[in-house]
Amino acid sequence: MANSFYIDLSLKFPDPYGSEVSPVYFKKNITEALCQLFGEVSSAVDIDLLKFDKEGRRGILRVPKSHYVKLRSSLTLASRYEGTVCCYIIHKVSPFLLGLQGDSRNYNH
């Protein structure tokens, strides 16, 4: 079984043309959210930002299996990006990177 989870997520602002987000700041914001809810030790875990699309503010994260629930719940409770209101939308989660390519959840017969 895979040891890590891949999360496909995007950052949403109330204003669609909100501030520009760089990959470094995106990652920093995620680590901050984790730190705020679970403290220093939990935020020291290896989280990797594999891909990031600046225009759509959408990226793919890799997180160890043991910290997936913690990371996801801190993303749910995160509401600030550099002082402005924001929210993270998680599109897909999979233990395999290929699994992000497609799933049956939105399948229409």
Binding site: K12, P14, R72, L75, T76, S79, V85, C86, C87, I89, I90
Partner: peptide, 8 residues
């Protein structure tokens, strides 16, 4: 902005 998806 404070509404989250049910899976979250």
């Amino acid at each position: 902005m404070y509404i989250r998806s049910p899976y979250d």
